[in-house]
Design a protein around this nucleic acid. Structure first.
Length: 268
DNA sequence: CTTTCAGCCTGACGGC
DNA sequence: TGCCGTCAGGCTGAAA
């Protein structure tokens, strides 16, 4: 599923084709996504120039001269550049047609994603925590926000109010690298260990972006090339297999309805 | 306030 | 072979 590194990889991949281009058309074949696609979207955006291709958390923002489009890839979404005459694939729901002849196609089998327009700031962005790779996010913040909290540390770091863009894969990997059990209460972790965790979160996300994002199941980046960060996953998806460090059997428990794999020897 | 949980959706997979 | 149940998971909003 697209996590922050995949979204950032997508942003970088589409930007050269989309930035400063005029929107000549927008076609919606299936507008029933996480939320219904904004009513009258083609009329709202036609003729406008794309003046920004940004990302906030796992949202992509196509900034127009008037208003902006907010795109979320949900669980199974992807964006890819295509030529206008490229045949539609199953689950291609939206197509943005640009003045340079390129088209941006939104593909999303499970339709957990979103494609919304707003004149002002999008509601979805209003109460988000800091970007993980920014200086606003560090161990100090984790420790401050974790004070007195009984929630397990893994759902705590996956909460968008703590820090954005840390999904199941990278939360699992960062906790393994930090030697912290995913089910440890957020309020019972020392400041020192939170600084270690904060650095590992940054490290694992930055490395994944550098490598072009993790590829799982149906994700392909915007140029259609798979990423390959999955080759270095130590725990995610490896329940029952052996720990790469101590060879013990990795446990798979559920925290906040999400599968959580860890090593009970290496993580305390 | 914090925490938990249902629901949205399709495709892959295992069991029979 | 095909049918059926289960699982995967980000995010929201409601319930506890």
């Amino acid at each position: 599923m697209p996590e922050l590194p995949e979204v950032e990889t997508t942003r970088r991949g589409i930007k050269p084709w989309v930035y400063q281009q005029k929107i000549v058309g927008l076609i919606i074949r299936q507008g029933s996504l996480r939320w219904p696609v904004t009513e009258g979207l083609p009329e709202l955006v036609r003729g406008q120039i794309v003046v920004g291709v940004m990302r906030r958390a796992k949202y992509l923002i196509l900034q127009l001269e008037r208003g902006s489009m907010l795109v979320h890839l949900g669980m199974s979404g992807s964006l890819r550049m295509a030529r206008a005459d490229t045949p539609w694939r199953k689950h291609d729901h939206i197509e943005l047609q640009l003045g340079n002849g390129a088209t941006l196609r939104y593909h999303d089998p499970r339709r957990f994603g979103a494609w919304l327009w707003s004149l002002d700031e999008h509601d979805q962005l209003a109460h988000l925590g800091p970007e993980p790779l920014s200086s606003e996010f560090d161990g100090e913040r984790l420790w401050q926000m974790g004070k007195g909290r009984k929630v397990a540390v893994k759902p705590f770091i996956m909460d968008n109010k703590t820090v954005v863009g840390v999904g199941n894969i990278y939360a699992s990997e960062a906790l393994f690298r930090s030697g912290i059990r995913p089910d440890r209460a957020a309020g019972r972790i020392s400041k020192k260990r939170y600084f270690v965790l904060g650095e590992h979160i940054k490290e694992v996300l930055a490395a994944a972006i550098e490598q072009g994002g993790t590829t799982l199941r149906d994700f392909v980046n915007s140029s259609g090339e798979p990423g390959y960060f999955q080759q270095t996953l130590a725990v995610y998806g490896r329940g029952g297999e052996n720990c790469i460090s101590c060879s013990g059997v990795l446990k798979d428990i559920r925290l906040g309805q999400r599968s959580s794999v860890f090593c009970s020897t290496c993580q305390r």
